[in-house]
Amino acid sequence: MRKLHLPLTKQEIMNLHAGDCVFLSGVVYTARDCAHKRLISMLDRGEPLPFDVRGAFIYYAGPCPAPTGKACGSCGPTTSARMNAFAPRLLREGLGGMIGKGEMDGETRRTIEECGAVYFAAVGGAGALYGNAIKRMETVAFPELLSEAVYRLEIEDFPAVVAHDAHGGSIY
């Protein structure tokens, strides 16, 4: 099984093809519905984003609170299609890719291809496994959004499948 370390180089992204099963380690940022709305508003107002999206990976997820002794609570992926309205804009800002669950729409898939990005599908409903693979967690922005805030996560061996690749390929 292939192991990858995020963020990825353009060459590493180009080597990925829909259907590849991989284990992901490295740094990701969480963001879901509310956080995306705010990030896009910040871009519209010309404000800097709370983290550098260039080359970065966003994980569509909203964790459970961390129990004592753990970096993070349960934290599986949420449905990516709800972020179709936001993903192309962030990809054009240089986002390296996304991790979520389920298919994304045509515009997002085309933008992934244009920008040389990649979308990984993690396994929905495996929150305990993913939460347990998060080794560090820091709040980056919007703490008042609770589970919907932006968190920086250090992950280790996240099982995922290449779902939409940089060549226009899709597993769905």
Partner: peptide
């Protein structure tokens, strides 16, 4: 992954899904 997750949830006493 889903079946492994269920075992981890039991072992670590974490919610099966967030």
């Amino acid at each position: 992954t889903v079946l492994e997750n269920e075992k981890i949830a039991q072992r670590e006493q974490m919610p099966v899904c967030q």
